[in-house]
Each structure stands twice: as structure tokens, then as C-alpha cells.
Design a protein around this nucleic acid. Structure first.
Lengths: 219, 219
DNA sequence: GTCTATACGTTGATAGAC
DNA sequence: GTCTATCAACGTATAGAC
């Protein structure tokens, strides 16, 4: 993250004002995601964000006006990425492929963007006051589509019935996001060692296997 | 929660000082669990806790000295309850029963004590700075026992192998705790309606079914 | 044991020099 | 567009009257 900030800053020669704004907004958004992930909306301070972004505190307010506004922008950006990862579920007809790629994409996101997942988790835990709209309209819509796909597979006897399709979907969310949200716990229980990329790939395949078997598909 | 506080207060006639302390500590701990769940350690204020407990702010400091100390007491109390729920895993020999009762107990805890689960989640998300000791010694020890039970079942061909037993255990934690930590999201996606007790019981059985099938046990 | 008053640091946000 | 200086509000914690 720090390297990212330095890299963006170094590239600046004589740049247009729009470009400076764009760069700084990205730097601040990345810093904010990290800080909000650790302390939540209320627990984070604009000074912390400014320090991580290596900018004076007043610049945060200059670009985003209020802390709440910056927070909303972070949430929005996470949601967009999340929905991108969710596409496999609608592009594959066979449950085995759809589930495999969706769970895989979610696991990859937990690995590459853990802070985003944590900001999301924090927001939900504290009652989702800033996300009700996103959840009740945009996410709800996607969930409905997804649930009907799962129900179709059940009707076609391609997978076992689990009663309510939501239960299955929530298990996928919970299990994959656990690798982002609870990463510190996983590290401590792994004797203080972070998983290497290849170890993580292994866990990913194991998770895919468990999820597939849970609905009766042999991986 | 509010009723609980009123009930404890009303019972006081002429009580010993020890008993007053005990009651107030319980009231404050319950209030703190609720507030810490919503805002995390940094985001919570002693005033909020005092207001929920219906006591003056200074009493919080009188009984627990510092906010951090109170927070640690809340975490400790959650951990104890958590370990109690974990007993089934060691008291049943057959995986089908052990898993069924453990997952059931975890689901029940998510239903009856969601705030505790959220405080725990918040603490892990923010890097577990106050819990490293609990995690790396006491929780680690329990996990090791649990993992070796699972491995024994695999060796006895009572359940399918999933590669690393931790992956299976983490899936159980994630899925069950999701019903506490993400309860607001679940409500919104359920059209704003909280699950009734009997609906929750249904979900619980579905989760148990998915978990059992994921290791090849027909529920 | 209870609670008001207050010390003293930190916070979000802005004004205004550069 | 950048950044120092500043402020009012709020934070934790304590002192001391009851």
C-alpha cells in the first residue's frame, strides 16, 4: 500500500489539475480503506488516514469534504468490485463450474483486497447505517437472481436441495470472507505464519471442494 | 437488555456492598457488550456505555477503571461462553453427532448472544491486539484437539478428507457466526423481517445439513 | 458507593496565507 | 491546489462533595 502511494506520487511531473486530483483521490481512498478496515467509521480519524496517505489532514477534507463522505465512497468502491467477482454465478450454466469459479473469485478477493472486505464487515456489524440502500436494492436484486439459479439447479436435480437457497449462498459468503475478515486469527492459529500464495491456493481448492460436496457435487 | 437492567436494579433492597458491585458490574458488562459490538473499541465511548447501563459515566470508571480494561473483561466473558458451546465436539465420538451438536450450539449462540460474537469479530478484524494471548494459547489448544478429532474421523473413513481439517473447522465458524455478525444484512435481504424462532430453527437444520454433507455424511 | 464538576488531550472541520 | 494555524465539540479520566 505504501509503495503504491509512493509510485503514484513519483510519476507526477507537470500534470494537469484533473490528474492530480484523480491521483490524490486514489491515494486517499486506498489509505481510508486500510484505516476504516482497522477501526471502523467511528474509530477512524481523518488524521490517521492523512498519515497513511502521507498528506496533510486538511487535504482529506479538501478532496472529500467530510469523513462520512469518504467512507461512503470506500463502501461504494468495494461493492462494485464485489459484484464483478459475482459474475461467474450468472455466466456458467453448470452448477459445478458456476460454484467453482464464484467461490474461487471470492477467495481471490479475500486474498487481494482484505481491507475492503473488512470495511464491509464492519459496516454490517455496526448496523449497516450507510449501506441500507445498496443492500436493499442492488445487492437484493443480485441475490434474487442467484437464488433462482440455485433453485433451478435443484429442480433439475443437478444439486441437492438445501431447503432455502439463501442458506447455501450465505455459507459461501461467510466461508470465503472469513479468509479476509479473520485473517489475523488465521495467522495466529497458523503459528504466526501468513499463508504463502501456494498454501492459499490449496485452501481455496479445499473450500471449493467442501462447498461443492455440501450440495452433493463430487469435485 | 434494558429490561434486564431494570430487573436487576429493582431487586435491590438493603443489599451488601459486594452484591451491589456484582450487580452493577453485570449491568455494565452487558451494556458494554452491546456498545462495543456496534462501534468497536475505539469507536465506543464510556458515555454511550453509561447511558445504556443507565448509570453515570464516572461509575464505569469506578468499577472498571479504564475503558480498555472493561473491553478485556467483555472479551474474556465471550470466550468462556464460546468454549462451553464447543464441548459437544469432544464429548461425542461419532462425527455425525459431534458435528450436529457443535454446529447447533454455535447457531444457538449466534441467536442468543449476537453482540458477543460481534465484539469478537470486531476485535479480530482490527488485528486482535487485545486477544493475542487468548488466541495463541487457549484457543489454539482447543483447535489442535479438534483438528485431531477430525483427522481421526478421516482415517477411520467416517468422513471424507478435506485436505486440511482447519479448513472445515473455519467453515463451521464462519457460517455459524455469520448469523450473528451479519444479522442486519440478513434482515435487509429478508425484506426487513427478522427471522422468527421457528424460521431460525429451520435455517439451523439447513446449515447442519450442508456442513454434514460437505464431508460426505448424509444428514 | 454515587455523582457533579472539571482537567486536559484529541477530533472534525475550516479559514486564510502561500 | 497545498498546508499551517485555529476552534468548538467531544473524549477519557479523576478529584472531591455528598
Amino acid at each position: 500500500m505504501g509503495d503504491q502511494i509512493v509510485a503514484v506520487k513519483a510519476k507526477r511531473g507537470q500534470r494537469s489539475k484533473e490528474s492530480i486530483r484523480e491521483d490524490n483521490e486514489l491515494i486517499i481512498l486506498a489509505a481510508a480503506e486500510k484505516v476504516f478496515a482497522k477501526h471502523g467509521l467511528k474509530g477512524s480519524t481523518t488524521k490517521q488516514i492523512a498519515d497513511v496517505a502521507k498528506l496533510p489532514k486538511s487535504n482529506i477534507h479538501y478532496y472529500f469534504h467530510t469523513k462520512l463522505n469518504l467512507y461512503r465512497r470506500v463502501l461504494e468502491s468495494i461493492f462494485v468490485e464485489w459484484m464483478k467477482a459475482a459474475e461467474p454465478f450468472n455466466t456458467y450454466d453448470e452448477p459445478k463450474e458456476a460454484i467453482r469459479f464464484y467461490v474461487g473469485a471470492k477467495m481471490d478477493l479475500s486474498r487481494t483486497r482484505p481491507f475492503g472486505s473488512k470495511v464491509w464487515a464492519n459496516e454490517i456489524i455496526s448496523g449497516a447505517p450507510e449501506m441500507e440502500e445498496i443492500l436493499s436494492s442492488r445487492l437484493k436484486k443480485w441475490v434474487d437472481t442467484c437464488v433462482s439459479s440455485i433453485n433451478t439447479w435443484v429442480e433439475l436435480k443437478k444439486i441437492n436441495s438445501m431447503g432455502d437457497a439463501h442458506t447455501f449462498l450465505y455459507m459461501i459468503w461467510a466461508t470465503t470472507q472469513h479468509y479476509a475478515d479473520f485473517d489475523y486469527q488465521l495467522i495466529i492459529l497458523n503459528n504466526g505464519k501468513k499463508l504463502t500464495d501456494s498454501e492459499f491456493e490449496e485452501k481455496k481448492q479445499q473450500v471449493i471442494g467442501l462447498v461443492l460436496r455440501s450440495v452433493g457435487i463430487e469435485p
